[in-house]
Design a binder for these strands. Structure first.
Length: 559
RNA sequence: UGGGCCGUCGCCAAGCGGUAAGGCACUGGACUUUGACUCCAGCACUCCCAGGUUCGAAUCCUGGCGGCCCAGCCA
């Protein structure tokens, strides 16, 4: 893809049971081309689970020379909005996929779907039912008991047709009638117990306006839409497995000239987050997060704002694979992909999250070294930048310890450490306030160590720093997991009670001056700290960075 | 307890009767002016359990156990 960094490794080549089915269908001649589709309902923002589906649907087809349609499954006007259509198209494109001119709406097929319904009625395979919703539930039976037939089940075809047309014409109120398929009220699969095909809704549809007051159900619309588009493989998640007999029933009893095959895979679960649009919607509506693009959310908009590169998400989807097994993927799996992509592509910079003043007494007042540092340790083509080194500096508070923990390689009283890209300094004096807190370090520097190793001794530690007066203040948002538990709903918990109160910490740090004009979404590695991106709220003079992910830290475990 | 599906390393996941891939994580070690990156090494005598078939079983059969999904005029 266009923004794949040259330094990144080749993406994993996916292979799974669905791709195998596709390969077999091509090999045996069942199909001579492949056409898949990604069919989101525009009732929320896309999340990483959708990314798995997008990568699968687009990927499996593209890899064998096929294409993939983008189709909005917009059969329920009460839950759908144009805002979601806009966000979805943006997110799919951002992820790196292109549907060319194949953008479709199930609602554009409503006339054809309606004709299919009349066809079923004429064939005696569908009927208008006047059972109320509650009655229908009673008649449906239970998981262990068969249902009973509605008294309307044997309504004459002509009457069904008349009533159905009246439903379309708007003469009947919502809830009075529905159109049902006539299948088998005793079927062990509840989806086959005369499922509802159409219901009346006097709602304005976001895409077709007031053209209809009669809306088809997913189970009826989806197979017809697939067949109309000539979809060869209709890939969806496991909860639709029980619907496949109904999917096949619809296609088999209609003359659509095409029979797509539905194949199901298990949806993605990620640790410490929730993945359903209903729950995400709740978090957004309740104001528990800042919006659909809150960087703590698993939404693609949130991940984009967090600084996750699209190629990292694609790689993640390739690595986790596709199967039918229940799963809950570790966050580290995703973070590994993010770090891999960002290590290769991100320019380095220095920033201090929790500043501790350092004065280099051996440098004169007003001293200024304009150091030229490489933007990337392995990619000189990413250029260089100038970093000012002055007498007064800030270092990370964590990089100094009065009492050295064992194995500590940073600054301690009377100890030496290298300033990244600068001199080796020695701590001569620790200045504290009345409360006994360390507020300043008085140090000396070894002028012979700029770009050279000190003679006669080895300095193990290297720490990052910024000039005290030539650095810029920045608001830095440190994100952590949104929930306290890997499964926020474990043991029937209300997931809202499991929110992590520390999922966002904002600190005011200092960043090197080269970052002054970095535009929103620009990504950097703050050396030794992590990967950060410029937030859309950032302005010159009021910089805002989001922590995308920390650097891997093999020291953190030791203390 | 009706129906459907699933159970291979801490987490994903290959495997499809011939003697357990890979990734992430983890543990060493090398390198290092990022405790990063990179590199090298280690990491399932065993595939939910129990029987059976077979020269040979994670793969086939039988019986258990465990988990997920389904009773919207949602998708």
């Amino acid at each position: 893809m266009a923004d794949a960094p040259s330094g990144s490794s080749a993406p994993s080549a996916p292979s799974d049971f669905i791709r195998r089915i596709i390969a077999d269908d091509l090999r045996t001649g069942k199909h001579d081309h492949i056409l898949t589709r990604f069919p989101p309902e525009p009732n929320g923002y896309l999340h990483i689970g959708h990314a798995k589906s997008i990568c699968l649907n687009f990927g499996s087809s593209l890899e064998v020379g096929g294409v993939c349609n983008l189709r909005f499954d917009d059969t329920n006007p009460e839950k759908e909005e144009q805002e979601y259509i806009d966000s979805i198209t943006r997110d799919v494109r951002w992820l790196g996929f292109d549907w060319a001119d194949r953008l479709f709406f199930a609602s554009d097929y409503f006339e054809k779907v309606y004709e299919c319904a009349e066809e079923l009625i004429r064939k005696g395979l569908a009927y208008v039912d006047s059972l109320s919703a509650e009655e229908m539930r009673e008649y449906r039976g239970t998981l262990t008991q068969p249902g009973r037939e509605s008294p309307d089940r044997h309504r004459p075809v002509e009457e069904n047709l008349r009533l159905f047309r009246e439903m379309r014409a708007g003469v009947h109120p919502e809830g009075k009638y529905v159109l049902r398929a006539k299948i088998d009220m005793a079927a062990p699969n509840i989806n086959l117990r005369d499922p509802v095909l159409y219901r009346v809704k006097f709602a304005t549809h976001h895409h077709v306006g007031d053209a209809w007051c009669l809306y088809p159900m997913y189970d009826f619309t989806h197979p017809i839409s697939d067949a109309l588009e000539g979809i060869t493989h209709s890939v969806c998640t496991l909860e639709f497995e029980d619907h496949r007999p109904l999917y096949d029933w619809v296609v088999d009893h209609l003359d659509l000239g095409c029979k797509p095959r539905q194949i199901e895979f298990s949806r993605l679960s990620l640790e410490y987050t929730v993945m359903s649009k209903r729950k995400l919607n709740l978090l957004v509506k309740e104001g528990l997060v800042s919006g659909w693009d809150d960087p703590r959310l698993p939404t693609l908009a949130g991940m984009r704002r967090r600084g996750y590169p699209p190629e990292a998400i694609r790689e993640f989807c390739a690595r986790i694979g596709v199967s039918k097994a229940d799963n809950r993927v570790e966050v580290g799996q995703l973070e590994s992909c993010v770090r891999e992509a960002l290590d290769a592509s991100s320019p380095r910079a220095m920033a201090v999250l929790r500043p501790l003043k350092v004065v280099i007494e051996t440098l004169p007042e007003g001293h200024l070294d304009r150091l030229t540092l490489g933007n990337h340790p392995k990619r000189p083509e990413l250029g260089q930048r100038s970093v000012p080194l002055t007498r007064d500096l800030f270092i990370e508070a964590d990089d100094f310890a009065e009492i050295s923990p064992k194995g500590f390689k940073r600054l301690v009283p009377d100890g030496e450490v290298r300033l990244r890209g600068g001199y080796v300094i020695r701590c001569r004096e620790v200045v504290k306030n009345e409360a006994g807190e360390v507020v300043e370090l008085r140090c000396t520097h070894d002028p012979a160590t700029l770009g050279a190793d000190p003679v006669g001794r080895k300095v193990r530690g290297v720490i990052h720093w910024v000039s005290a007066d030539r650095s810029l203040p920045a608001s830095i948002r440190l994100y952590d997991r949104l929930f306290l538990r890997p499964d926020p709903e474990e043991e029937g918990q209300d997931f809202l009670t499991m929110l992590n109160p520390a999922s966002l910490e904002t600190v005011t740090g200092r960043v090197e001056p080269s970052l002054a004009d970095a535009p929103p979404e620009a990504r950097f590695q703050f050396e030794r700290v992590g990967y950060f991106c410029v937030d859309q709220d950032s302005r010159p003079g009021a910089l805002v960075f989001n922590r995308t992910v920390t650097l891997r830290d093999s020291w953190a475990g030791g203390n």
